[in-house]
Design a protein around this nucleic acid. Sequence first.
DNA 1: GTAATATATGAATACTTGTTCATATATTCA
DNA 2: TGAATATATGAACAAGTATTCATATATTAC
Lengths: 96, 96
Amino acid sequence: MKLSELKAIKLAELFSSLSDASRIRLIALLMDGEMSVRALADGLSMTESAVSHQLRGLRQMHLVRARKSGRQVFYSIDDDHVSRLFTLGFDHVQHE
Amino acid sequence: MKLSELKAIKLAELFSSLSDASRIRLIALLMDGEMSVRALADGLSMTESAVSHQLRGLRQMHLVRARKSGRQVFYSIDDDHVSRLFTLGFDHVQHE
DNA sequence: GTAATATATGAATACTTGTTCATATATTCA
DNA sequence: TGAATATATGAACAAGTATTCATATATTAC
């Protein structure tokens, strides 16, 4: 299978979104349902700023979705591909 | 789902293996079957050195497997998880 | 209006990573 | 044995990235 450079870059960017432990832990938390930025930051002992920066990247790659309610923003997994990628990767690292 | 830091790192490392366009194109080529280092390098217009460096990383993450025959080394996709991850990611970037 | 809270963003820094170049190892052939 | 070929590896440099800190925006409460 010969992949165009453009498509290869798109694919690499997708996997890059999942290539950091902080982002993986964010997504793991979101697997249970939507959470606010503060709740995510508290849950992972990260600053809100760091979380916010990471969420931006995940949002731009359509891995998570934001829902604003009052002054809070609730994040959730964007689409099913994401949870399947996560689960498949999780299975892979289990068997080692 | 609360993930241990260690498991998050493992998962991130797995996805990191797929987070570069050159590696994605290597894996795409290998989806059709095993190939030598030179054939891969030729197919992607990369130096053998660059290919070899990348293959080492993929090998260490158990994404590809090496088979030595004479002075050539033939690489192939290591296990089914890998092709499934690749395909799932590919589907995701198609729908955009 | 002001104060307080939640999130986002830009710049700077420290860290990681992919490639190149030079060199090393391994194998085949004469 | 020595020359040629295939691959691997170490060091170095350039480019990319995650976090922190300071600051900005937006919303609610008073």
